[in-house]
Design a protein around this nucleic acid. Structure first.
Length: 277
DNA sequence: AAGCGCCGCAACCGCCATCTG
DNA sequence: GCAGATGGCGGTTGCGGCGCT
Protein backbone atom coordinates (compact mmCIF):
# COMPACT_ATOMS: atom_id res chain seq x y z
CA UNK A 1 0.00 0.00 0.00
CA UNK A 2 2.96 2.25 -0.08
CA UNK A 3 2.61 3.41 3.47
CA UNK A 4 4.87 2.47 6.24
CA UNK A 5 3.18 0.37 8.89
CA UNK A 6 2.16 2.06 12.08
CA UNK A 7 4.00 -0.50 14.12
CA UNK A 8 6.48 -3.21 13.56
CA UNK A 9 4.86 -6.08 11.73
CA UNK A 10 7.74 -8.42 11.14
CA UNK A 11 6.39 -11.94 11.28
CA UNK A 12 2.87 -10.79 11.87
CA UNK A 13 0.01 -12.29 9.93
CA UNK A 14 -2.22 -10.04 7.88
CA UNK A 15 -5.38 -10.39 5.86
CA UNK A 16 -8.56 -12.25 6.70
CA UNK A 17 -8.93 -13.84 10.09
CA UNK A 18 -9.30 -17.57 10.42
CA UNK A 19 -11.88 -19.21 12.66
CA UNK A 20 -9.10 -20.39 14.91
CA UNK A 21 -7.72 -16.89 15.35
CA UNK A 22 -11.20 -15.62 16.09
CA UNK A 23 -11.63 -18.27 18.74
CA UNK A 24 -8.29 -17.48 20.34
CA UNK A 25 -9.04 -13.79 20.42
CA UNK A 26 -12.56 -14.25 21.74
CA UNK A 27 -11.45 -16.63 24.44
CA UNK A 28 -8.68 -14.35 25.57
CA UNK A 29 -10.84 -11.25 25.76
CA UNK A 30 -13.68 -13.05 27.48
CA UNK A 31 -11.25 -14.23 30.10
CA UNK A 32 -9.12 -11.14 30.46
CA UNK A 33 -11.30 -8.32 29.24
CA UNK A 34 -10.66 -5.67 26.64
CA UNK A 35 -7.70 -3.35 26.64
CA UNK A 36 -3.94 -3.70 26.43
CA UNK A 37 -4.34 -4.28 22.75
CA UNK A 38 -0.66 -4.01 21.95
CA UNK A 39 0.24 -6.62 24.46
CA UNK A 40 -2.74 -8.83 23.67
CA UNK A 41 -1.38 -10.65 20.62
CA UNK A 42 1.68 -11.81 22.50
CA UNK A 43 -0.26 -12.89 25.53
CA UNK A 44 -2.96 -14.60 23.52
CA UNK A 45 -0.54 -16.23 21.14
CA UNK A 46 -1.74 -14.42 18.05
CA UNK A 47 0.54 -13.33 15.26
CA UNK A 48 -1.44 -10.18 14.74
CA UNK A 49 -0.98 -6.49 15.31
CA UNK A 50 -2.79 -5.23 18.38
CA UNK A 51 -4.75 -2.85 16.28
CA UNK A 52 -5.89 -5.67 14.09
CA UNK A 53 -7.04 -7.60 17.15
CA UNK A 54 -8.98 -4.64 18.44
CA UNK A 55 -10.63 -4.07 15.08
CA UNK A 56 -11.59 -7.72 14.75
CA UNK A 57 -13.08 -7.76 18.21
CA UNK A 58 -14.90 -4.47 17.91
CA UNK A 59 -16.37 -5.13 14.50
CA UNK A 60 -17.09 -8.86 14.49
CA UNK A 61 -16.41 -10.81 17.62
CA UNK A 62 -17.89 -8.54 20.24
CA UNK A 63 -21.13 -9.92 21.70
CA UNK A 64 -24.26 -8.31 20.36
CA UNK A 65 -22.90 -7.38 16.98
CA UNK A 66 -25.53 -7.44 14.27
CA UNK A 67 -24.39 -8.21 10.77
CA UNK A 68 -26.09 -7.23 7.55
CA UNK A 69 -29.79 -6.68 6.95
CA UNK A 70 -29.85 -3.04 7.86
CA UNK A 71 -33.50 -2.22 8.28
CA UNK A 72 -35.33 0.72 6.76
CA UNK A 73 -35.55 2.34 10.17
CA UNK A 74 -31.85 1.98 10.69
CA UNK A 75 -31.20 3.34 7.24
CA UNK A 76 -33.37 6.36 7.89
CA UNK A 77 -31.62 6.99 11.14
CA UNK A 78 -28.23 6.75 9.50
CA UNK A 79 -29.24 9.30 6.90
CA UNK A 80 -30.61 11.66 9.50
CA UNK A 81 -27.70 11.33 11.83
CA UNK A 82 -25.28 11.77 8.97
CA UNK A 83 -27.07 14.99 8.15
CA UNK A 84 -26.45 16.18 11.68
CA UNK A 85 -23.09 14.71 12.48
CA UNK A 86 -21.34 14.27 9.17
CA UNK A 87 -18.87 11.43 8.79
CA UNK A 88 -18.64 10.75 12.49
CA UNK A 89 -19.34 7.10 12.06
CA UNK A 90 -18.62 6.11 15.60
CA UNK A 91 -21.23 8.53 16.88
CA UNK A 92 -23.74 7.36 14.33
CA UNK A 93 -22.98 3.77 15.19
CA UNK A 94 -23.52 4.62 18.82
CA UNK A 95 -27.15 5.31 18.06
CA UNK A 96 -27.60 1.99 16.30
CA UNK A 97 -27.31 -0.84 18.79
CA UNK A 98 -25.25 -3.72 17.50
CA UNK A 99 -23.93 -1.80 14.54
CA UNK A 100 -20.31 -0.84 14.13
CA UNK A 101 -18.83 2.30 12.72
CA UNK A 102 -17.08 0.29 10.05
CA UNK A 103 -20.28 -1.34 8.90
CA UNK A 104 -22.14 1.95 8.81
CA UNK A 105 -19.31 3.60 6.99
CA UNK A 106 -19.26 0.86 4.41
CA UNK A 107 -23.02 0.91 4.13
CA UNK A 108 -23.03 4.63 3.60
CA UNK A 109 -20.29 4.55 1.02
CA UNK A 110 -21.85 1.73 -0.94
CA UNK A 111 -25.62 1.79 -0.57
CA UNK A 112 -26.76 5.09 0.86
CA UNK A 113 -24.45 7.38 -1.01
CA UNK A 114 -25.57 5.84 -4.24
CA UNK A 115 -29.19 5.96 -3.24
CA UNK A 116 -29.07 9.56 -2.11
CA UNK A 117 -27.14 10.57 -5.18
CA UNK A 118 -29.82 9.02 -7.33
CA UNK A 119 -32.41 10.92 -5.35
CA UNK A 120 -30.47 14.12 -5.86
CA UNK A 121 -30.01 14.91 -2.21
CA UNK A 122 -26.29 14.78 -1.99
CA UNK A 123 -24.27 17.94 -1.52
CA UNK A 124 -22.93 18.04 -5.03
CA UNK A 125 -24.01 15.13 -7.18
CA UNK A 126 -21.81 16.08 -10.08
CA UNK A 127 -18.78 16.26 -7.87
CA UNK A 128 -17.71 13.01 -6.30
CA UNK A 129 -17.28 13.14 -2.58
CA UNK A 130 -13.66 12.68 -1.70
CA UNK A 131 -13.00 9.01 -1.37
CA UNK A 132 -16.57 8.09 -0.86
CA UNK A 133 -17.67 6.31 -3.99
CA UNK A 134 -15.83 3.10 -4.36
CA UNK A 135 -16.16 2.85 -8.08
CA UNK A 136 -15.08 6.40 -8.73
CA UNK A 137 -12.26 6.00 -6.32
CA UNK A 138 -11.12 2.74 -7.80
CA UNK A 139 -11.13 4.08 -11.29
CA UNK A 140 -9.17 7.04 -10.07
CA UNK A 141 -6.82 4.85 -8.11
CA UNK A 142 -6.08 2.78 -11.14
CA UNK A 143 -5.33 5.91 -13.09
CA UNK A 144 -3.20 7.31 -10.33
CA UNK A 145 -1.17 4.17 -10.13
CA UNK A 146 -0.01 4.83 -13.63
CA UNK A 147 1.49 8.10 -12.52
CA UNK A 148 4.92 8.43 -11.01
CA UNK A 149 4.74 8.61 -7.24
CA UNK A 150 6.32 12.03 -7.15
CA UNK A 151 3.60 13.51 -9.29
CA UNK A 152 0.97 11.76 -7.24
CA UNK A 153 1.97 13.90 -4.33
CA UNK A 154 1.75 17.11 -6.27
CA UNK A 155 -0.25 19.32 -3.95
CA UNK A 156 -1.56 21.84 -6.40
CA UNK A 157 -3.76 21.52 -9.39
CA UNK A 158 -1.09 22.18 -11.95
CA UNK A 159 -0.03 18.58 -12.04
CA UNK A 160 -3.54 17.44 -12.70
CA UNK A 161 -3.90 20.03 -15.39
CA UNK A 162 -0.72 18.84 -17.02
CA UNK A 163 -2.08 15.34 -17.14
CA UNK A 164 -5.39 16.52 -18.41
CA UNK A 165 -7.22 14.88 -15.54
CA UNK A 166 -10.05 17.26 -14.94
CA UNK A 167 -11.33 15.41 -11.91
CA UNK A 168 -8.06 16.11 -10.17
CA UNK A 169 -8.80 19.78 -10.28
CA UNK A 170 -11.01 19.13 -7.32
CA UNK A 171 -8.97 19.48 -4.17
CA UNK A 172 -8.55 15.90 -3.07
CA UNK A 173 -8.89 16.37 0.64
CA UNK A 174 -11.56 18.99 0.84
CA UNK A 175 -14.25 17.84 3.24
CA UNK A 176 -16.66 20.66 2.84
CA UNK A 177 -19.85 18.69 2.73
CA UNK A 178 -19.88 17.97 6.41
CA UNK A 179 -18.25 19.07 9.61
CA UNK A 180 -14.74 17.82 9.78
CA UNK A 181 -14.65 14.71 11.87
CA UNK A 182 -13.24 15.71 15.17
CA UNK A 183 -13.08 14.34 18.60
CA UNK A 184 -15.84 15.47 20.85
CA UNK A 185 -14.64 13.85 23.98
CA UNK A 186 -13.24 16.61 26.20
CA UNK A 187 -16.30 16.23 28.36
CA UNK A 188 -16.13 12.53 28.93
CA UNK A 189 -13.46 9.99 29.29
CA UNK A 190 -12.10 7.88 26.50
CA UNK A 191 -13.15 4.79 28.29
CA UNK A 192 -16.79 5.70 28.21
CA UNK A 193 -18.48 5.02 24.95
CA UNK A 194 -20.99 7.46 23.62
CA UNK A 195 -23.66 4.91 24.28
CA UNK A 196 -22.88 4.54 27.90
CA UNK A 197 -22.44 8.21 28.25
CA UNK A 198 -25.68 9.03 26.52
CA UNK A 199 -27.64 6.60 28.62
CA UNK A 200 -25.91 7.25 31.89
CA UNK A 201 -28.50 9.68 33.16
CA UNK A 202 -27.04 12.81 31.66
CA UNK A 203 -29.23 12.46 28.64
CA UNK A 204 -32.88 13.19 28.61
CA UNK A 205 -33.76 12.95 32.28
CA UNK A 206 -32.10 16.21 33.10
CA UNK A 207 -32.36 17.35 29.56
CA UNK A 208 -34.93 19.97 30.43
CA UNK A 209 -32.44 21.95 32.46
CA UNK A 210 -29.89 21.73 29.76
CA UNK A 211 -32.42 22.56 27.12
CA UNK A 212 -33.36 25.68 29.04
CA UNK A 213 -29.80 26.86 28.91
CA UNK A 214 -29.19 25.51 25.47
CA UNK A 215 -28.57 27.81 22.57
CA UNK A 216 -30.92 27.87 19.66
CA UNK A 217 -30.49 25.52 16.75
CA UNK A 218 -29.24 28.35 14.59
CA UNK A 219 -26.75 29.38 17.22
CA UNK A 220 -25.40 25.92 17.56
CA UNK A 221 -25.20 25.41 13.86
CA UNK A 222 -23.48 28.72 13.42
CA UNK A 223 -20.99 27.67 16.03
CA UNK A 224 -20.38 24.22 14.68
CA UNK A 225 -20.53 25.04 11.01
CA UNK A 226 -19.79 28.76 10.90
CA UNK A 227 -19.14 28.73 7.18
CA UNK A 228 -22.58 27.38 6.49
CA UNK A 229 -24.51 29.07 9.23
CA UNK A 230 -23.17 32.54 9.86
CA UNK A 231 -24.51 33.62 13.19
CA UNK A 232 -27.66 35.63 12.96
CA UNK A 233 -28.67 34.99 9.41
CA UNK A 234 -30.55 31.82 9.99
CA UNK A 235 -28.50 30.06 7.39
CA UNK A 236 -30.61 31.13 4.48
CA UNK A 237 -28.23 33.51 2.88
CA UNK A 238 -26.05 32.40 0.06
CA UNK A 239 -23.24 34.68 1.01
CA UNK A 240 -20.69 32.14 2.05
CA UNK A 241 -20.72 29.74 -0.81
CA UNK A 242 -17.87 27.64 0.40
CA UNK A 243 -19.46 24.58 -1.08
CA UNK A 244 -22.13 26.19 -3.01
CA UNK A 245 -24.94 27.18 -0.73
CA UNK A 246 -27.24 26.43 -3.56
CA UNK A 247 -26.19 22.83 -3.32
CA UNK A 248 -25.61 22.14 0.32
CA UNK A 249 -28.14 24.28 2.05
CA UNK A 250 -31.12 22.86 0.20
CA UNK A 251 -29.81 19.44 1.07
CA UNK A 252 -29.46 20.32 4.70
CA UNK A 253 -32.83 21.92 4.78
CA UNK A 254 -34.23 18.88 3.10
CA UNK A 255 -32.71 16.67 5.73
CA UNK A 256 -33.68 18.98 8.54
CA UNK A 257 -37.18 19.07 7.16
CA UNK A 258 -37.23 15.33 7.00
CA UNK A 259 -36.13 15.20 10.60
CA UNK A 260 -38.52 17.94 11.59
CA UNK A 261 -41.27 15.80 10.24
CA UNK A 262 -40.75 13.78 13.35
CA UNK A 263 -40.39 16.38 16.04
CA UNK A 264 -39.63 13.94 18.76
CA UNK A 265 -36.97 12.36 16.67
CA UNK A 266 -35.42 15.71 15.99
CA UNK A 267 -35.59 16.70 19.62
CA UNK A 268 -33.98 13.49 20.71
CA UNK A 269 -31.20 13.55 18.19
CA UNK A 270 -30.63 17.24 18.60
CA UNK A 271 -30.62 17.02 22.37
CA UNK A 272 -27.96 14.36 22.22
CA UNK A 273 -26.03 16.41 19.74
CA UNK A 274 -26.10 19.43 22.03
CA UNK A 275 -24.70 17.36 24.80
CA UNK A 276 -21.95 16.14 22.59
CA UNK A 277 -20.91 19.72 22.13
C1' DA B 1 -16.92 -21.36 -20.57
C1' DA B 2 -13.84 -17.63 -20.20
C1' DG B 3 -12.63 -13.00 -19.62
C1' DC B 4 -13.57 -8.66 -17.81
C1' DG B 5 -15.17 -5.06 -14.90
C1' DC B 6 -17.82 -3.59 -11.03
C1' DC B 7 -19.28 -3.86 -6.32
C1' DG B 8 -19.23 -4.80 -1.41
C1' DC B 9 -16.81 -5.48 2.53
C1' DA B 10 -13.05 -6.80 5.65
C1' DA B 11 -8.91 -5.12 6.92
C1' DC B 12 -5.23 -1.86 7.02
C1' DC B 13 -3.33 2.75 7.48
C1' DG B 14 -1.98 7.29 9.44
C1' DC B 15 -3.46 10.71 12.42
C1' DC B 16 -4.55 12.52 16.71
C1' DA B 17 -6.52 12.86 21.48
C1' DT B 18 -5.75 11.07 25.78
C1' DC B 19 -3.31 8.67 29.28
C1' DT B 20 0.73 7.69 32.00
C1' DG B 21 5.11 8.04 34.05
C1' DG C 1 5.32 20.41 31.29
C1' DC C 2 7.04 16.83 28.40
C1' DA C 3 7.58 12.60 25.82
C1' DG C 4 6.30 8.08 24.85
C1' DA C 5 2.53 4.72 24.85
C1' DT C 6 -2.02 3.62 23.93
C1' DG C 7 -6.54 3.60 22.04
C1' DG C 8 -9.92 5.26 18.84
C1' DC C 9 -11.27 7.31 14.63
C1' DG C 10 -12.16 8.14 9.68
C1' DG C 11 -10.15 7.34 5.24
C1' DT C 12 -8.36 4.10 2.05
C1' DT C 13 -7.07 -0.23 -0.04
C1' DG C 14 -7.25 -4.90 -1.86
C1' DC C 15 -9.54 -9.08 -2.60
C1' DG C 16 -13.28 -12.16 -3.58
C1' DG C 17 -17.76 -12.66 -5.49
C1' DC C 18 -20.96 -11.65 -8.91
C1' DG C 19 -22.96 -10.28 -13.20
C1' DC C 20 -22.38 -9.06 -17.87
C1' DT C 21 -20.54 -9.77 -22.47
Amino acid sequence: MGRSPCCSKEGLKRGPWSAREDAILSDYILQNGEGQWRALPGKAGLLRCGKSCRLRWMNYLRPGIKRGNISQDEEDLIVRLHGLLGNRWSLIAGRLPGRTDNEIKNYWNTHLHKKLAAAGVLPCPNRPLPGSIASEKKKKTKEDKKLPAKEEEEPNNDAATKHGRVDDLVPPKTKVYSPKPMRVSPGFSRSSSYDSWATSGTSSSDGADKAAAAPSTAEVLSYVWPAMFPAGDGGDEEGDDFLGAGTFLPLLHHQMDAIAGDDKMLDQVYDEYLQLL
